[in-house]
Design a protein around this nucleic acid. Structure first.
Lengths: 229, 229
DNA sequence: TCTTTTTCTTGACATAAGTCAAGGCAAAGA
DNA sequence: TCTTTGCCTTGACTTATGTCAAGAAAAAGA
Protein backbone atom coordinates (compact mmCIF):
# COMPACT_ATOMS: atom_id res chain seq x y z
CA UNK A 1 0.00 0.00 0.00
CA UNK A 2 1.59 3.18 -1.19
CA UNK A 3 2.15 6.23 0.93
CA UNK A 4 -0.83 8.49 0.51
CA UNK A 5 1.21 11.52 1.52
CA UNK A 6 2.76 11.30 -1.93
CA UNK A 7 -0.39 12.95 -3.21
CA UNK A 8 0.69 16.19 -1.56
CA UNK A 9 3.18 17.01 -4.30
CA UNK A 10 0.48 16.66 -6.96
CA UNK A 11 -2.17 18.82 -5.29
CA UNK A 12 -2.71 22.06 -7.24
CA UNK A 13 -3.08 23.97 -3.97
CA UNK A 14 0.53 23.13 -3.16
CA UNK A 15 1.89 23.94 -6.59
CA UNK A 16 4.97 26.09 -6.71
CA UNK A 17 6.17 25.15 -3.24
CA UNK A 18 9.75 24.01 -2.69
CA UNK A 19 10.53 20.47 -1.60
CA UNK A 20 11.25 21.72 1.88
CA UNK A 21 7.90 23.39 2.03
CA UNK A 22 6.16 20.29 0.73
CA UNK A 23 7.81 18.34 3.50
CA UNK A 24 6.46 20.78 6.03
CA UNK A 25 3.02 20.19 4.57
CA UNK A 26 3.39 16.43 4.76
CA UNK A 27 4.56 16.75 8.34
CA UNK A 28 1.33 18.32 9.53
CA UNK A 29 -1.03 16.18 7.47
CA UNK A 30 -2.98 13.34 9.05
CA UNK A 31 -4.39 10.43 7.09
CA UNK A 32 -8.06 9.57 7.53
CA UNK A 33 -10.19 6.93 5.89
CA UNK A 34 -13.94 7.00 5.29
CA UNK A 35 -16.25 4.35 3.93
CA UNK A 36 -18.86 5.02 1.30
CA UNK A 37 -21.80 6.78 2.89
CA UNK A 38 -19.86 7.82 5.96
CA UNK A 39 -20.20 11.39 7.24
CA UNK A 40 -16.97 13.39 7.31
CA UNK A 41 -18.40 16.39 9.08
CA UNK A 42 -21.79 17.95 9.66
CA UNK A 43 -23.11 21.47 9.41
CA UNK A 44 -22.47 23.23 12.68
CA UNK A 45 -19.45 21.13 13.66
CA UNK A 46 -16.45 23.19 14.73
CA UNK A 47 -13.88 23.29 11.95
CA UNK A 48 -10.58 22.21 13.38
CA UNK A 49 -8.94 21.83 10.03
CA UNK A 50 -9.53 21.11 6.37
CA UNK A 51 -9.18 18.11 4.08
CA UNK A 52 -7.65 17.13 0.77
CA UNK A 53 -8.96 14.14 -1.16
CA UNK A 54 -6.16 11.63 -1.72
CA UNK A 55 -8.50 9.00 -3.07
CA UNK A 56 -12.25 8.73 -3.47
CA UNK A 57 -15.12 11.17 -3.89
CA UNK A 58 -16.75 13.52 -1.42
CA UNK A 59 -19.99 15.47 -1.58
CA UNK A 60 -20.68 18.72 0.24
CA UNK A 61 -24.39 19.30 0.76
CA UNK A 62 -27.19 20.99 2.64
CA UNK A 63 -30.50 19.49 3.72
CA UNK A 64 -33.81 21.35 4.04
CA UNK A 65 -36.22 21.02 6.94
CA UNK A 66 -38.32 18.78 4.67
CA UNK A 67 -35.36 16.52 3.97
CA UNK A 68 -34.56 17.61 0.44
CA UNK A 69 -30.86 17.64 -0.28
CA UNK A 70 -28.87 20.16 -2.32
CA UNK A 71 -25.33 19.21 -3.29
CA UNK A 72 -22.98 22.18 -3.34
CA UNK A 73 -19.83 20.45 -4.57
CA UNK A 74 -18.43 17.11 -5.45
CA UNK A 75 -14.71 16.86 -4.82
CA UNK A 76 -12.31 14.31 -6.27
CA UNK A 77 -8.62 13.54 -6.02
CA UNK A 78 -6.35 16.47 -5.25
CA UNK A 79 -9.15 18.85 -4.25
CA UNK A 80 -9.26 20.56 -0.86
CA UNK A 81 -12.48 21.09 1.06
CA UNK A 82 -13.71 22.35 4.41
CA UNK A 83 -11.36 25.35 4.45
CA UNK A 84 -13.96 27.98 5.25
CA UNK A 85 -13.92 27.47 9.06
CA UNK A 86 -10.12 27.59 9.05
CA UNK A 87 -10.21 31.24 8.12
CA UNK A 88 -13.50 32.42 9.62
CA UNK A 89 -13.30 30.58 12.93
CA UNK A 90 -16.96 29.64 12.48
CA UNK A 91 -18.40 26.11 12.25
CA UNK A 92 -18.88 24.22 8.98
CA UNK A 93 -21.70 25.74 6.93
CA UNK A 94 -22.60 22.42 5.26
CA UNK A 95 -22.25 18.66 5.51
CA UNK A 96 -19.61 16.41 3.95
CA UNK A 97 -20.02 12.73 3.13
CA UNK A 98 -17.85 10.21 1.32
CA UNK A 99 -19.79 8.96 -1.72
CA UNK A 100 -17.08 6.39 -2.37
CA UNK A 101 -14.54 4.83 -0.04
CA UNK A 102 -12.06 7.65 0.48
CA UNK A 103 -8.61 8.39 1.78
CA UNK A 104 -8.32 11.96 3.00
CA UNK A 105 -5.52 14.12 4.27
CA UNK A 106 -6.49 16.26 7.23
CA UNK A 107 -4.67 19.52 7.97
CA UNK A 108 -5.17 20.81 11.51
CA UNK A 109 -6.11 24.44 11.56
CA UNK A 110 -3.43 25.91 13.81
CA UNK A 111 -0.57 24.12 12.05
CA UNK A 112 -1.80 25.19 8.66
CA UNK A 113 -2.28 28.81 9.66
CA UNK A 114 1.28 28.84 10.96
CA UNK A 115 2.48 27.46 7.67
CA UNK A 116 0.55 29.91 5.54
CA UNK A 117 1.68 32.86 7.64
CA UNK A 118 5.28 32.37 6.67
CA UNK A 119 4.58 31.35 3.12
CA UNK A 120 3.25 33.90 0.63
CA UNK A 121 3.14 31.41 -2.24
CA UNK A 122 0.90 29.11 -0.23
CA UNK A 123 -1.39 31.91 0.84
CA UNK A 124 -1.76 33.19 -2.72
CA UNK A 125 -2.50 29.65 -3.79
CA UNK A 126 -5.18 29.33 -1.15
CA UNK A 127 -6.62 32.68 -2.17
CA UNK A 128 -6.82 31.38 -5.73
CA UNK A 129 -8.61 28.22 -4.57
CA UNK A 130 -11.19 30.18 -2.62
CA UNK A 131 -11.65 32.62 -5.49
CA UNK A 132 -12.25 29.80 -7.95
CA UNK A 133 -14.79 28.38 -5.59
CA UNK A 134 -16.59 31.71 -5.37
CA UNK A 135 -16.69 31.76 -9.13
CA UNK A 136 -18.21 28.28 -9.18
CA UNK A 137 -20.86 29.30 -6.68
CA UNK A 138 -21.66 32.27 -8.87
CA UNK A 139 -22.37 29.89 -11.72
CA UNK A 140 -24.40 27.59 -9.51
CA UNK A 141 -26.58 30.45 -8.26
CA UNK A 142 -27.05 31.62 -11.83
CA UNK A 143 -28.10 28.12 -12.83
CA UNK A 144 -30.51 27.65 -9.94
CA UNK A 145 -32.13 31.01 -10.26
CA UNK A 146 -31.98 31.88 -13.93
CA UNK A 147 -32.28 28.53 -15.72
CA UNK A 148 -34.86 25.81 -15.70
CA UNK A 149 -33.86 22.24 -15.06
CA UNK A 150 -33.33 21.31 -18.73
CA UNK A 151 -30.93 24.22 -19.09
CA UNK A 152 -29.03 23.19 -15.99
CA UNK A 153 -28.73 19.63 -17.20
CA UNK A 154 -27.52 20.75 -20.62
CA UNK A 155 -24.89 23.00 -19.03
CA UNK A 156 -23.76 20.19 -16.79
CA UNK A 157 -23.41 17.73 -19.65
CA UNK A 158 -21.39 20.20 -21.71
CA UNK A 159 -19.24 20.96 -18.69
CA UNK A 160 -18.67 17.25 -18.13
CA UNK A 161 -17.71 16.69 -21.75
CA UNK A 162 -15.18 19.47 -21.46
CA UNK A 163 -13.90 18.10 -18.17
CA UNK A 164 -13.55 14.60 -19.56
CA UNK A 165 -11.98 15.85 -22.76
CA UNK A 166 -14.54 13.99 -24.81
CA UNK A 167 -16.33 15.53 -27.71
CA UNK A 168 -19.59 13.70 -27.88
CA UNK A 169 -19.97 11.32 -25.00
CA UNK A 170 -19.73 11.59 -21.25
CA UNK A 171 -19.90 9.25 -18.29
CA UNK A 172 -21.60 10.35 -15.09
CA UNK A 173 -19.35 9.87 -12.09
CA UNK A 174 -22.34 10.01 -9.74
CA UNK A 175 -25.76 8.39 -9.65
CA UNK A 176 -28.69 10.10 -11.33
CA UNK A 177 -30.29 10.75 -7.95
CA UNK A 178 -27.16 12.54 -6.85
CA UNK A 179 -27.10 14.44 -10.11
CA UNK A 180 -30.67 15.54 -9.46
CA UNK A 181 -29.59 16.86 -6.08
CA UNK A 182 -26.62 18.64 -7.62
CA UNK A 183 -28.91 20.30 -10.18
CA UNK A 184 -31.38 21.38 -7.53
CA UNK A 185 -34.19 19.03 -8.50
CA UNK A 186 -35.51 15.54 -7.75
CA UNK A 187 -34.92 12.19 -9.51
CA UNK A 188 -38.39 12.06 -11.08
CA UNK A 189 -37.99 15.40 -12.77
CA UNK A 190 -34.48 14.59 -13.95
CA UNK A 191 -35.65 11.31 -15.35
CA UNK A 192 -38.41 12.99 -17.35
CA UNK A 193 -35.99 15.53 -18.72
CA UNK A 194 -33.56 12.83 -19.81
CA UNK A 195 -36.46 11.21 -21.64
CA UNK A 196 -37.54 14.49 -23.23
CA UNK A 197 -34.05 15.36 -24.40
CA UNK A 198 -33.71 11.91 -25.86
CA UNK A 199 -36.99 12.37 -27.76
CA UNK A 200 -35.65 15.62 -29.11
CA UNK A 201 -32.55 13.82 -30.31
CA UNK A 202 -30.25 15.96 -28.21
CA UNK A 203 -28.77 13.04 -26.32
CA UNK A 204 -28.83 9.26 -26.00
CA UNK A 205 -28.75 7.74 -22.54
CA UNK A 206 -27.70 4.27 -21.55
CA UNK A 207 -27.05 3.89 -17.87
CA UNK A 208 -24.39 6.36 -16.88
CA UNK A 209 -23.13 6.83 -20.41
CA UNK A 210 -24.61 9.76 -22.26
CA UNK A 211 -24.00 10.47 -25.89
CA UNK A 212 -24.21 14.11 -26.89
CA UNK A 213 -25.97 13.86 -30.22
CA UNK A 214 -26.59 17.55 -30.81
CA UNK A 215 -24.14 19.77 -29.00
CA UNK A 216 -25.34 23.03 -30.50
CA UNK A 217 -28.89 22.05 -29.66
CA UNK A 218 -27.78 21.45 -26.09
CA UNK A 219 -26.13 24.84 -25.88
CA UNK A 220 -29.40 26.57 -26.62
CA UNK A 221 -31.65 24.52 -24.37
CA UNK A 222 -33.89 26.80 -22.37
CA UNK A 223 -33.30 29.92 -24.39
CA UNK A 224 -36.23 31.45 -26.20
CA UNK A 225 -38.10 28.56 -27.79
CA UNK A 226 -38.79 25.28 -26.11
CA UNK A 227 -36.56 23.29 -23.83
CA UNK A 228 -38.81 20.40 -24.46
CA UNK A 229 -42.50 20.19 -25.25
CA UNK B 1 -15.06 67.51 1.12
CA UNK B 2 -13.28 65.05 3.33
CA UNK B 3 -10.57 62.70 2.20
CA UNK B 4 -12.18 59.45 1.23
CA UNK B 5 -8.95 57.57 1.84
CA UNK B 6 -9.70 57.96 5.52
CA UNK B 7 -12.14 55.10 5.10
CA UNK B 8 -9.19 52.72 4.69
CA UNK B 9 -8.48 52.62 8.40
CA UNK B 10 -12.05 51.59 9.14
CA UNK B 11 -12.34 48.79 6.59
CA UNK B 12 -12.55 45.38 8.32
CA UNK B 13 -10.34 43.87 5.60
CA UNK B 14 -7.51 46.12 6.75
CA UNK B 15 -8.01 45.50 10.46
CA UNK B 16 -4.91 44.72 12.44
CA UNK B 17 -2.52 46.44 10.07
CA UNK B 18 0.02 48.91 11.38
CA UNK B 19 -0.17 52.59 10.49
CA UNK B 20 2.71 52.11 8.08
CA UNK B 21 0.90 49.32 6.35
CA UNK B 22 -2.30 51.35 6.17
CA UNK B 23 -0.32 54.09 4.50
CA UNK B 24 0.95 51.60 1.94
CA UNK B 25 -2.65 50.66 1.26
CA UNK B 26 -3.71 54.27 0.86
CA UNK B 27 -0.80 54.84 -1.48
CA UNK B 28 -1.99 52.30 -4.02
CA UNK B 29 -5.70 53.13 -3.80
CA UNK B 30 -7.41 55.18 -6.50
CA UNK B 31 -10.63 57.08 -5.96
CA UNK B 32 -13.50 56.50 -8.38
CA UNK B 33 -16.99 57.92 -8.44
CA UNK B 34 -20.12 56.34 -9.93
CA UNK B 35 -23.59 57.74 -10.32
CA UNK B 36 -26.71 55.82 -9.44
CA UNK B 37 -27.40 53.26 -12.14
CA UNK B 38 -23.90 53.40 -13.56
CA UNK B 39 -22.10 50.16 -14.39
CA UNK B 40 -18.86 49.57 -12.49
CA UNK B 41 -17.85 46.47 -14.38
CA UNK B 42 -19.50 43.80 -16.50
CA UNK B 43 -19.29 40.05 -16.58
CA UNK B 44 -16.37 39.06 -18.78
CA UNK B 45 -14.38 42.24 -18.24
CA UNK B 46 -10.76 41.63 -17.29
CA UNK B 47 -10.27 42.20 -13.58
CA UNK B 48 -7.42 44.61 -13.14
CA UNK B 49 -8.12 45.20 -9.48
CA UNK B 50 -10.81 45.23 -6.83
CA UNK B 51 -12.90 47.84 -5.07
CA UNK B 52 -13.88 48.94 -1.60
CA UNK B 53 -17.06 50.96 -1.04
CA UNK B 54 -16.19 54.27 0.63
CA UNK B 55 -19.67 55.63 0.22
CA UNK B 56 -22.83 54.40 -1.48
CA UNK B 57 -24.29 51.01 -2.38
CA UNK B 58 -23.31 48.51 -5.05
CA UNK B 59 -25.10 45.46 -6.42
CA UNK B 60 -23.39 42.43 -7.91
CA UNK B 61 -25.69 40.54 -10.26
CA UNK B 62 -26.16 38.14 -13.15
CA UNK B 63 -28.66 38.38 -15.99
CA UNK B 64 -30.26 35.45 -17.80
CA UNK B 65 -30.67 35.16 -21.53
CA UNK B 66 -34.32 36.15 -21.02
CA UNK B 67 -33.33 39.26 -19.13
CA UNK B 68 -34.18 38.15 -15.61
CA UNK B 69 -31.75 39.47 -13.03
CA UNK B 70 -30.38 37.69 -9.98
CA UNK B 71 -28.60 39.79 -7.40
CA UNK B 72 -25.71 37.97 -5.74
CA UNK B 73 -24.65 40.61 -3.25
CA UNK B 74 -25.34 44.12 -2.15
CA UNK B 75 -22.29 45.84 -0.71
CA UNK B 76 -22.23 48.93 1.48
CA UNK B 77 -19.61 51.08 3.15
CA UNK B 78 -16.37 49.34 4.04
CA UNK B 79 -17.03 46.22 2.00
CA UNK B 80 -14.65 44.99 -0.69
CA UNK B 81 -15.87 43.48 -3.96
CA UNK B 82 -14.52 42.25 -7.27
CA UNK B 83 -11.58 40.41 -5.69
CA UNK B 84 -12.10 37.09 -7.45
CA UNK B 85 -10.24 38.02 -10.66
CA UNK B 86 -7.33 39.38 -8.62
CA UNK B 87 -6.48 35.86 -7.48
CA UNK B 88 -7.72 33.72 -10.35
CA UNK B 89 -6.51 35.86 -13.22
CA UNK B 90 -9.86 35.28 -14.92
CA UNK B 91 -12.42 37.92 -15.89
CA UNK B 92 -15.25 39.09 -13.64
CA UNK B 93 -17.91 36.38 -13.26
CA UNK B 94 -20.75 38.89 -12.72
CA UNK B 95 -21.78 42.51 -13.19
CA UNK B 96 -21.49 45.40 -10.72
CA UNK B 97 -23.64 48.51 -10.70
CA UNK B 98 -23.94 51.44 -8.30
CA UNK B 99 -27.50 51.50 -6.95
CA UNK B 100 -26.79 54.83 -5.25
CA UNK B 101 -24.24 57.48 -6.03
CA UNK B 102 -21.00 55.90 -4.82
CA UNK B 103 -17.42 56.70 -4.00
CA UNK B 104 -15.18 53.69 -4.44
CA UNK B 105 -11.57 52.92 -3.76
CA UNK B 106 -9.91 50.93 -6.49
CA UNK B 107 -6.89 48.73 -5.77
CA UNK B 108 -4.86 47.76 -8.85
CA UNK B 109 -4.16 44.08 -8.96
CA UNK B 110 -0.38 44.02 -9.24
CA UNK B 111 0.16 46.56 -6.47
CA UNK B 112 -2.17 44.72 -4.16
CA UNK B 113 -0.62 41.33 -4.82
CA UNK B 114 2.78 42.82 -4.00
CA UNK B 115 1.39 44.15 -0.77
CA UNK B 116 -0.26 40.93 0.26
CA UNK B 117 2.83 38.90 -0.55
CA UNK B 118 4.86 40.64 2.14
CA UNK B 119 2.05 40.87 4.61
CA UNK B 120 0.68 37.74 6.29
CA UNK B 121 -1.88 39.65 8.34
CA UNK B 122 -3.37 41.13 5.20
CA UNK B 123 -3.46 37.81 3.41
CA UNK B 124 -5.14 36.08 6.35
CA UNK B 125 -7.62 38.91 6.43
CA UNK B 126 -8.37 38.49 2.76
CA UNK B 127 -8.72 34.73 3.24
CA UNK B 128 -11.25 35.45 5.96
CA UNK B 129 -13.18 37.79 3.67
CA UNK B 130 -13.37 35.23 0.88
CA UNK B 131 -14.30 32.49 3.32
CA UNK B 132 -17.14 34.56 4.75
CA UNK B 133 -18.36 35.17 1.25
CA UNK B 134 -18.31 31.44 0.48
CA UNK B 135 -20.38 30.91 3.59
CA UNK B 136 -22.89 33.52 2.41
CA UNK B 137 -23.17 31.86 -0.98
CA UNK B 138 -23.79 28.58 0.77
CA UNK B 139 -26.75 30.17 2.51
CA UNK B 140 -27.98 31.74 -0.70
CA UNK B 141 -27.88 28.45 -2.57
CA UNK B 142 -29.68 26.78 0.29
CA UNK B 143 -32.35 29.46 0.18
CA UNK B 144 -32.80 29.32 -3.59
CA UNK B 145 -32.91 25.58 -3.79
CA UNK B 146 -34.44 24.41 -0.54
CA UNK B 147 -36.88 27.16 0.39
CA UNK B 148 -39.86 28.65 -1.32
CA UNK B 149 -40.13 32.39 -1.74
CA UNK B 150 -42.06 33.04 1.51
CA UNK B 151 -39.34 31.25 3.45
CA UNK B 152 -36.64 33.26 1.73
CA UNK B 153 -38.41 36.51 2.48
CA UNK B 154 -38.90 35.54 6.12
CA UNK B 155 -35.21 34.68 6.47
CA UNK B 156 -34.23 37.93 4.86
CA UNK B 157 -36.45 40.00 7.17
CA UNK B 158 -35.08 38.26 10.25
CA UNK B 159 -31.55 38.75 8.96
CA UNK B 160 -32.23 42.44 8.37
CA UNK B 161 -33.67 42.89 11.84
CA UNK B 162 -30.53 41.36 13.29
CA UNK B 163 -28.33 43.48 11.05
CA UNK B 164 -30.16 46.66 11.98
CA UNK B 165 -30.21 45.73 15.66
CA UNK B 166 -33.95 46.23 15.79
CA UNK B 167 -36.27 43.82 17.46
CA UNK B 168 -39.51 44.23 15.65
CA UNK B 169 -39.17 46.58 12.73
CA UNK B 170 -36.89 46.84 9.74
CA UNK B 171 -36.32 49.28 6.90
CA UNK B 172 -35.48 47.98 3.45
CA UNK B 173 -32.37 49.64 2.07
CA UNK B 174 -33.30 48.63 -1.47
CA UNK B 175 -36.46 48.82 -3.57
CA UNK B 176 -38.91 45.94 -3.54
CA UNK B 177 -38.05 45.12 -7.15
CA UNK B 178 -34.43 44.80 -6.18
CA UNK B 179 -35.39 42.71 -3.19
CA UNK B 180 -37.33 40.41 -5.51
CA UNK B 181 -34.19 40.01 -7.61
CA UNK B 182 -32.10 39.33 -4.52
CA UNK B 183 -34.55 36.64 -3.40
CA UNK B 184 -34.59 35.02 -6.82
CA UNK B 185 -38.12 35.97 -7.79
CA UNK B 186 -40.05 38.76 -9.53
CA UNK B 187 -41.82 41.84 -8.14
CA UNK B 188 -45.35 40.46 -8.71
CA UNK B 189 -44.65 37.35 -6.68
CA UNK B 190 -42.95 39.30 -3.90
CA UNK B 191 -45.86 41.70 -3.74
CA UNK B 192 -48.35 38.87 -3.36
CA UNK B 193 -46.29 37.31 -0.60
CA UNK B 194 -46.07 40.58 1.30
CA UNK B 195 -49.86 40.75 1.10
CA UNK B 196 -50.25 37.15 2.21
CA UNK B 197 -47.91 37.54 5.18
CA UNK B 198 -49.76 40.68 6.18
CA UNK B 199 -53.06 38.77 6.07
CA UNK B 200 -51.53 36.13 8.29
CA UNK B 201 -50.52 38.84 10.75
CA UNK B 202 -46.85 38.00 10.47
CA UNK B 203 -45.84 41.48 9.34
CA UNK B 204 -47.16 44.95 8.59
CA UNK B 205 -45.85 46.76 5.56
CA UNK B 206 -45.85 50.48 4.89
CA UNK B 207 -43.55 51.49 2.10
CA UNK B 208 -40.06 50.37 2.98
CA UNK B 209 -40.82 50.01 6.68
CA UNK B 210 -41.81 46.55 7.77
CA UNK B 211 -43.01 45.71 11.22
CA UNK B 212 -42.31 42.17 12.38
CA UNK B 213 -45.51 41.35 14.20
CA UNK B 214 -44.88 37.67 14.80
CA UNK B 215 -41.20 36.77 14.85
CA UNK B 216 -41.67 33.16 15.85
CA UNK B 217 -44.27 32.79 13.12
CA UNK B 218 -41.74 34.17 10.65
CA UNK B 219 -39.09 31.72 11.76
CA UNK B 220 -41.30 28.81 10.86
CA UNK B 221 -42.57 30.08 7.51
CA UNK B 222 -42.28 27.36 4.92
CA UNK B 223 -41.76 24.50 7.29
CA UNK B 224 -44.34 21.76 7.41
CA UNK B 225 -47.66 23.56 7.48
CA UNK B 226 -48.55 26.54 5.36
CA UNK B 227 -46.36 29.46 4.37
CA UNK B 228 -49.47 31.09 3.15
CA UNK B 229 -52.53 29.55 1.66
C1' DT C 1 -27.38 -17.99 -10.54
C1' DC C 2 -31.10 -16.38 -7.79
C1' DT C 3 -32.72 -13.12 -4.42
C1' DT C 4 -32.92 -8.83 -2.28
C1' DT C 5 -32.39 -4.09 -2.30
C1' DT C 6 -31.69 0.10 -4.29
C1' DT C 7 -32.19 3.13 -8.08
C1' DC C 8 -34.67 4.61 -11.95
C1' DT C 9 -38.80 5.48 -14.68
C1' DT C 10 -43.57 6.62 -15.62
C1' DG C 11 -48.37 8.16 -14.64
C1' DA C 12 -51.83 11.06 -12.42
C1' DC C 13 -52.21 15.01 -9.90
C1' DA C 14 -51.31 19.38 -7.05
C1' DT C 15 -49.26 23.75 -6.59
C1' DA C 16 -45.78 27.50 -6.43
C1' DA C 17 -44.51 30.81 -9.13
C1' DG C 18 -43.98 32.96 -13.73
C1' DT C 19 -46.40 35.79 -17.70
C1' DC C 20 -49.34 39.25 -19.45
C1' DA C 21 -52.03 43.15 -18.69
C1' DA C 22 -54.19 46.97 -16.35
C1' DG C 23 -54.57 50.24 -12.89
C1' DG C 24 -52.98 52.74 -8.62
C1' DC C 25 -49.52 54.93 -6.00
C1' DA C 26 -45.54 57.49 -4.91
C1' DA C 27 -41.30 59.76 -5.86
C1' DA C 28 -38.86 63.11 -8.81
C1' DG C 29 -38.89 67.09 -11.51
C1' DA C 30 -41.14 71.26 -13.59
C1' DT D 1 -48.50 72.41 -6.51
C1' DC D 2 -49.05 69.81 -10.68
C1' DT D 3 -47.29 66.49 -13.83
C1' DT D 4 -44.60 62.89 -15.32
C1' DT D 5 -42.24 58.67 -14.71
C1' DG D 6 -41.24 54.64 -12.66
C1' DC D 7 -42.60 51.40 -8.93
C1' DC D 8 -45.86 48.62 -6.89
C1' DT D 9 -50.12 45.91 -6.67
C1' DT D 10 -53.79 42.90 -8.26
C1' DG D 11 -56.30 39.75 -11.47
C1' DA D 12 -56.59 35.96 -14.78
C1' DC D 13 -54.06 32.52 -16.74
C1' DT D 14 -50.11 29.18 -17.94
C1' DT D 15 -46.54 26.23 -16.84
C1' DA D 16 -42.57 24.02 -14.67
C1' DT D 17 -41.77 21.17 -11.24
C1' DG D 18 -42.88 18.90 -6.97
C1' DT D 19 -45.77 14.89 -4.63
C1' DC D 20 -47.56 10.38 -4.33
C1' DA D 21 -47.69 5.83 -5.93
C1' DA D 22 -46.53 1.82 -8.56
C1' DG D 23 -43.76 -0.83 -11.37
C1' DA D 24 -39.26 -1.82 -13.98
C1' DA D 25 -34.51 -2.08 -14.16
C1' DA D 26 -30.12 -2.47 -12.30
C1' DA D 27 -26.90 -3.36 -8.67
C1' DA D 28 -25.48 -5.82 -4.59
C1' DG D 29 -25.36 -9.82 -1.94
C1' DA D 30 -26.26 -14.74 -0.93
Amino acid sequence: MKNIFEIVSTVPLFDGLSDDQLNEIKKIALSKRFNKGETIFSEGDPGNGFYVVAEGLVKIYKVSSEGKEQILHIFGIGEPFGEVPVFTGQPFPANAEAIAGSHLLFFPRADFVDLITGNPALSLSMLAVLSMRLRQFTVQIENLSLKEVPGRLASYLLYLADEQGKEDSVTLDISKSQLASLLGTIPETLSRIFAKMTDMKLIEVSGRKIKLVDRSGLMHVGEHGKSGE
